[in-house]
Design a protein around this nucleic acid. Structure first.
Length: 255
DNA sequence: ATGGCCAATTTTATTGGA
């Protein structure tokens, strides 16, 4: 079973690339973030034609997440279901082949002294509350654009970036706490020393200079960790015309 | 060729991304 996550930065701008990528790599599940559009602009027919079901949670202009899968998604839920008023479409979950798939577009946080950062921290706490209600003895996969670099290995210019909304003790602590409650960072587990990134800023020649960050993650509970065979960050997807600023990350599990 | 922001909307500026 292959499960991938990809922040595509607009489904309309990235439709061709997404369809080509699906066709090339045939993931069983693809979790998308930052659709930047309503449900009706999602290319459902084109994805169906490639053999994928889609569960979409869009909104105008901002955010938006979706889960594509070869087998039908069951028990699809949008939002954390905690009753909190939230206008952002940032979370969708489904059960696919018995695996609980959780897909999040975590808030960026703006500046460290902004309301957006307050929102980010509150959202992270809500997600922990959601995870509290899960059984980590079951196969659970939490993926998406976390907007968190877990360690110094996961960001270029770590000293310069220390303290920003993506890389500071508070968000690293949140990530660490998630691992302590039974999740494994699949990439770091298989590649303890690797410095690979999943996002590069469009500005400042970030990609040629490789001043990126690893902020897109696939975390799994023990039953899936035991089946984990590989994790791959598709760096090449950042090349060429009209790339997203993020690239896909894909984990492979034994069937 | 891996190249000096990009995408959506409020559209010839502004907002958000990270």
């Amino acid at each position: 079973m292959k499960v991938a996550t990809w922040n595509i930065n607009s489904v309309r701008a990235r439709e061709e690339r997404v369809l080509a990528w699906l066709e090339n790599y045939q993931p069983d599940v693809l979790c998308l973030q930052e659709l930047k559009g309503t449900d009706d602009v999602f290319p459902a027919e084109a994805t169906n034609a490639l053999g994928y079901h889609c569960a979409v949670f869009g909104q105008p202009t901002y955010n938006g997440v979706a889960i594509l899968s070869k087998t039908p998604p069951e028990d699809v839920t949008r939002t954390f279901g905690d009753g909190v008023e939230d206008s952002h479409a940032r979370f969708i979950a489904a059960t696919i082949n018995g695996v609980h798939i959780l897909n999040g577009y975590f808030p960026n946080g703006g500046d460290i002294d902004s309301d957006k950062y307050v929102y980010k921290l509150a959202w992270l706490e809500r997600l922990h509350a959601y995870l509290d209600a899960l059984d980590v003895n079951e196969p659970v996969l939490l993926c998406g654009d976390f907007n968190i670099a877990p360690s110094k290995l996961d960001t270029a210019n770590a000293d310069k970036r220390e303290g920003n909304v993506l890389f500071n003790p508070t968000v690293r602590g949140w990530f660490e706490k998630t691992l302590e409650r039974g999740f494994t960072d699949t990439f770091r587990h298989l590649y303890p020393e690797e410095e690979q990134y999943s996002w590069w800023d469009y500005r400042n020649l970030s990609f040629p200079k490789n001043t990126g960050m690893r902020i897109d993650h696939i975390l799994v509970t023990e039953p899936l960790k035991e089946r984990l065979q590989d994790v791959w960050i598709d760096r090449d997807e950042r090349k060429g015309k009209k790339p997203s600023d993020h690239v896909p990350v894909m984990a492979t599990f034994a069937d």
